[in-house]
Write a protein that binds this DNA or RNA. Structure first.
Length: 578
RNA sequence: GGCCUUGUGGUCAAGCGGUUAAGACGGCGCCCUCUCACGGCGCAAUCCCGGGUUCGAUUCCCGGCAAGGUCACCA
């Protein structure tokens, strides 16, 4: 068989000698130990947590070692192309401080480009042609139907499916048959002529999994599709060789095709990169768990986390704790160190699939946000609100001084201990809502309506804006005592039966009246921030609310009079000492 | 089904022949306290199963079992 002539017929044209490419893409000049890693997404523009997970690992390994991280776009499958996708990927990863050194749309050094696989057709074809010339690749004319039939036949016989050995029909086509098919214009693909035997297994060192056993490949895989575009396997070999990747960190799903890649690198005469196959992020799905999928888990898209307003650093910290088992301990000891100082290693990556744990992420989020200053928090919330918030929420930021005071209080800044109420921007914005909008609903007032009315009324009478926290609380205690509630918690605990409740219940009524919520930070401070007029109006509004309920349940003329009198009394009262 | 990978509390996990089997999240309880949050203290909960090897196995070996991945002209 004249392979040379066949190659020319199959892939016509002049291609440079192979060492042309070796010279054009020379080994990189990097310090010893420096790793070249890459991210190679399809241009769908959709990034989810699983992608970020892998991206962080690649980025850390490259940059920890003084190496290079580049972005290659696997756009061999035209159906998946989405406009602006590459920019979206870069932007999404930049949010997590993942910066590429080179690659698609990055600019700068183009030595190892093109970065889009579709721009690399010439290189692929040159090497496919070479493989045909040396008899390691051949044309296959089998139709899709024939391949399907073959697979069914193999399945029925309980044999391994695929195009290999005696089933590789086109492998043994005579020269005459090949040219006859070609002359007849039959479409064809180019397949690798495999020399392997899967019975033979080799030890292989995986940077993450450790020593594993890998059988030889015997599948005559397609390397060039009928449209002239290479398959992933072939492009991987050519690209990672000429882009001089040193360490391929990729998902565990590629482990099964490692034998193919090994044979391909060997057949092409390329030295192999090292590999690390990382476990994927899993999700509990009913009884079982499965790997995160972009189809089934849209809520795991990075976009979802941006909308919720998760703090980028928190997500990154969480990913790192999953990625390297010793990270969490390091971070406890070095809470303020830059994340990049952690010595990230492939060897410390988990060998088994990890379940995504939202509780843990939320916990980390709280801790990370509690480290911010009021100004930083305001900036974070504001940028979130501008993109995702309602009009009302955007308006929260009009009064910067008020926002600063609100956040200072809600984060416990200046106190002995920081509060940790905030997990995400959307949750935090909702949390501080009552500072900016009057409550429309009230969490249940805890005691009888009569007491509520009395307590609110008495508070309105006693309230003075100028009181300090102590004086203010003293008045609350007095009101408690006057209504049969224990002024001191100790007294109440010692003898709960003699009281209607404690000062805590009284404070709760005031809290609900002022904020609509039963649980808030320090009430006195809240009232100071709200301002006197606003406090009075809110208490009054609550008073009305409670009184109306009371009235509805106890309709008598006497009560009506009492109520009118009370409301009138209270309404006249404020302003006196202002 | 073949092949590959992985099995320590509910989750993430330390551990590398002898430990009361770390720690974190979550759960529960107590303390602090005007509520919440924070903080402090404590509790419950784990070595997939069966054989070996060994004075001794969570740790080493073999065999099961389970889970995950993969078997395309998708990546």
């Amino acid at each position: 068989m004249d392979y040379k002539a066949l190659a020319e017929r199959l892939i016509p044209g002049n291609y440079p000698a192979l060492d042309h490419y070796e010279k054009k893409y020379p080994p990189r000049d990097l310090p010893k130990g420096a790793e070249v890693t890459r991210l190679a997404p399809s241009p769908t523009g959709f990034i989810h947590l699983g992608n970020l997970f892998a991206a962080i690992a690649n980025e850390r390994i490259a940059h920890r070692s003084g190496g290079v991280l580049y972005l290659r776009i696997e756009d061999t499958d035209l159906k998946r192309k989405v406009d602006g996708a590459v920019e979206a990927v870069i932007k999404a990863l930049d949010y997590f401080d993942i910066k590429f050194d080179e690659g698609a749309e990055i600019g700068g050094d183009e030595t190892y480009g093109p970065w889009y696989q579709r721009g690399r057709a010439e290189i692929y074809r040159a090497f496919v042609k070479h493989l045909i010339e040396i008899g390691r690749a051949y044309p296959c004319f089998c139709t899709e139907e024939e391949l399907t039939a073959l697979r069914e036949e193999q399945t029925a016989r309980k044999e391994v499916t695929g195009y290999y050995g005696k089933y590789a029909r086109c492998r043994d086509l005579t020269e005459e048959e090949i040219y006859a098919n070609l002359d007849a214009g039959k479409p064809f693909v180019i397949r690798l002529k495999s020399l392997g035997n899967p019975e033979i297994k080799h030890k292989f060192h995986d940077e993450i999994k450790g020593d594993i056993t890998v059988p030889e490949n015997d599948q005559d895989v397609v390397i060039l599709k009928s449209d002239g575009i290479p398959t992933y396997h072939f492009a991987h070999a050519v690209d990672d060789h000429f882009m001089r990747t040193t360490l391929v960190i990729r998902g565990e799903e590629w482990l099964a095709s490692l034998p193919i890649h090994i044979e391909l690198f060997d057949a092409l005469g390329f030295s192999r990169p090292r590999y690390g196959h990382n476990c994927s992020l899993m999700k509990q799905d009913g009884e079982t768990r499965r790997k995160l999928s972009k189809r089934k888990d849209p809520e795991l898209s990075l976009e979802f986390y941006r909308k919720e307003g998760y703090f980028a650093r928190a997500v990154k910290v969480y990913m790192l704790t999953l990625l390297n088992s010793n990270f969490e301990e390091w971070y406890q000891k070095n809470p303020d160190a830059p994340l990049d100082e952690f010595k990230f290693t492939a060897a410390k990556m988990s060998k088994s699939g990890t379940l995504f744990d939202l509780d843990k992420l939320n916990d980390i989020s709280k801790n990370e946000l509690s480290k911010l200053s009021a100004e930083e928090m305001a900036a974070f919330l504001k940028s979130w609100a501008e993109e995702f918030g309602s009009e009302a929420q955007k308006a929260y930021f009009n009064d910067e001084e008020k926002m600063r005071r609100v956040l200072t209080l809600c984060m416990g800044i200046g106190g002995k201990k920081r509060r940790k109420d905030f997990t995400t921007a959307s949750q935090a914005t909702e949390f501080i809502k009552y500072f900016f909008e009057r409550p429309e609903t009230y969490e249940n007032f805890p005691c009888g309506q009569t007491d509520c009315v009395c307590i609110l009324r008495q508070f309105l009478e006693a309230y003075r804006y100028g009181d300090d926290a102590q004086a203010w609380f003293g008045k609350v205690k007095e009101i408690a005592a006057a209504n049969g509630f224990a002024a001191e918690m100790k007294d109440y605990k010692a003898d709960p039966a003699s009281y209607k409740g404690s000062v805590a219940d009284v404070a709760e009524i005031l809290r609900i009246a002022a904020t609509g919520k039963a649980n808030t930070p320090d009430l006195w401070t809240i009232m100071q921030i709200l301002g006197e007029d606003e406090v009075r109006e809110r208490i009054l509004k609550a008073l009305w609310e409670v009184a109306e309920h009371w009235w509805g349940e106890n309709q008598t003329p006497e009560l009506e009079n009492a109520l009118d009198e009370m409301i009138a009394h209270v309404t006249d009262k404020p302003g006196e000492d202002r």
